[in-house]
Design a protein around this nucleic acid. Structure first.
Lengths: 360, 360
DNA sequence: CACGAAGCTGTAACCGGTCACAGGACGATA
DNA sequence: TATCGTCCTGTGACCGGTTACAGCTTCGTG
């Protein structure tokens, strides 16, 4: 009897059991390697699996175990940032890798519009994923409060201001990073150092600024409000901020910019204004995710260790899912010097502890 | 045995049924809106759902229906391209949106290493997703053959050379795009037009080159092999290709580059070589995904309609999952003129049909 | 020799949905 | 009044796994 339509049913655990001459419970035990199973049984089950080409149905498994085996990577930034900011894609890549190593699947959710946000909330709070990785959270976001109330396991990239006690997070040591950038500029002789910050409702935005003020104050300098302009990570905001700075503080001799994207946008503005980089104005960015090397001049910047951050986020989320109390992890940053602010004599100065690689 | 996590029981369909005073089958009917249900029953079920905060368990649903409600977005490019090529992130964003609108979830899979590839194949062929969206497929990839043999529903972005009859695809009209770019350069008076192509095992790489040769031949010009260099979409390959061109064909008066990433990398090379853009050498790219506007000079380029491509891919995949025979869809491109090759007198010429927007 | 423990295996209940099918209520029609 | 069709609802089987529990060997020990 040849079936007209080749009904290609995928083999189930019971097919494997029949093939192996054992019960399906034994097959399950072999698959999960939990309990005592005789070596012969293990072998015949493995053979049967190989012969039938069996793979477990993840939905049946999730239904039985109550775990989904998947986590959500949640982006709440407006879409133009997703495109221009390499941080996202680098982090995404690393997280995907880390999850793949743990046999977990990565569900990408983008919640930019109000509709998407409410759909996203329903999905995440419905227990459809084991946990959520949150990127670049803004503390004012109501979605955060809802997720926390629904007790969804969350790990954020960057501390979530106001939620430090309830949301676990992994962040770069932004404050030290900002401080080392500013100290490098100070050591190079700059005294009128401006800063373009990130949004002040993100930990990265706040801490990098804090590091900058730390360094200036430690060197006995005043913080000049005119030299500080807030950006929103986007290129456009970087260019706009640079124009404001040139207007408000035309005597500046250096700019520390809280992201490479924004820093990249300052270069043409400076060039148009007739300022040479680094001779007239030194520029130091933050991130070092590939963009910095491709600019002209290449950009000195603080390396944002996204590899380790991704790794730690996944590890931490596993803990949080298992019921661990919230925890914040900080990962050290590294200053990388390139053409836009090369190493000067400062490398030899005893008061300057941090030393980056030689400029290329 | 105490469970590790205190599993807060979520309400099930039976809880809702009890609450509403109906059977669970009726609740299911209301949820799926399938069969005849009395208005009162609908109302009381909806009330009960609102009261209990019920959301359906997608795994139970998948198990019962045999559909997973999720599709995989599969990337097979080496990771450095994922970072530098904005095409990926733009497409990803759009696909995510289109899927979200259909209440489907997007599972991101990156198969760069051999391990990841085999894991990915097992996962996809195991029927864990309803279908696969494939980005930038290279025809030599063995993973493709395996997926086709396993009868996994696939829609690719770009035709898959050699698999046109078995893998559905959505592509830009790369050939017309390449042709309009070259025609624009010809109309601007250029006669020694070089080209940096994409990989010749991708339809985009082949077709954009084909469009270029179409235009040159139509104008009675010979195809000079010395003026054609193959790239691999990456910035590095663009810079390298430009150097080769300056060496092999130093008399060139224009370059058509098959991607904006590669085109971006040609600009510093040209500048270093003392060639002014566009005065000495005109440059036209391909993609128009944001990067082109941020370059200096801003880049004339062929707009790659990723919005529509994403939309069509999702639509087409739905059809393929439903059993539709393979189909290739082509979406038109548009030439966008900016500083690197502004519109000339050609716009007025009768033999030049295509006219882009005025340069900014 | 009786008995308990250890090692292994099978049965059955359960996870939370979908859906085929049986059947009840009720009005229309013969 | 009997019969039929339409509308609506409930029961129970099933999807493919996991796991509690019981049962069967086999062996060691008092």
């Amino acid at each position: 009897m040849i079936p007209v339509v080749p009904t290609r049913k995928r083999p189930t655990i019971r097919d494997v059991a029949r093939e192996a001459g054992v019960s399906y419970a034994t097959v399950s035990r072999v698959l999960n390697g939990r309990e005592w199973v005789s070596p012969e049984a293990v072998r015949s089950v493995r053979d049967a699996i190989a012969r039938t080409g069996y793979t477990a149905n993840p939905h049946a498994r999730s239904l039985a175990t109550g775990r989904s085996g998947s986590i959500a990577f949640l982006l709440t930034e407006p879409q133009h940032l997703l495109f221009s900011d390499p941080n996202f894609s680098v982090l995404l890549r690393r997280v995907a890798q880390a999850l793949s190593d743990r046999e977990q699947t990565l569900i990408l959710m983008i919640a930019a519009t109000p509709e998407e946000r409410s759909r996203t909330f329903n999905y995440l709070s419905g227990g459809h994923v084991d946990g959520v990785l949150l990127v670049s959270p803004h503390s004012g976001d109501p979605l955060l409060g809802h997720l926390v109330r629904a007790e969804v396991p969350i790990v954020a990239c960057g501390r979530v201001l106001g939620y430090e006690q309830v949301i676990s997070s992994v962040a770069a040591d932004d404050r030290s990073g900002g401080r080392s950038a500013a100290e490098h500029l100070l050591a190079a002789g700059c005294r009128k150092i401006a800063m373009i910050t990130g949004p002040q409702d993100t930990s990265g935005g706040v801490d990098r600024l804090q590091g900058y003020t730390d360094a200036l104050i430690a060197h006995g300098l005043d913080i000049e409000p005119a030299r500080i302009v807030h950006g929103d990570w986007s290129r456009e905001s970087g260019a706009a901020a640079m124009r404001i700075l040139l207007d408000r503080a035309p005597d500046l001799d250096a700019v520390f910019v809280a992201s490479d994207s924004m820093a990249a946008a300052t270069l043409p503005v400076l060039r148009e204004a007739g300022r040479r980089v680094p001779d007239d104005v030194r520029v130091v960015g933050f991130d070092d995710t590939g963009l910095a090397e491709t600019l002209d001049p290449t950009l000195s910047t603080v390396h944002h260790p996204l590899d380790r951050i991704a790794e730690e986020m996944v590890r931490l989320l596993t803990d949080v899912v298992a019921g661990r109390t919230p925890l914040s992890i900080t990962v050290p940053t590294t200053l990388v010097l390139r053409e836009s602010s090369p190493a000067g004599t400062d490398a030899a100065r005893p008061d300057f502890r941090w030393i980056g690689p030689e400029p290329t």
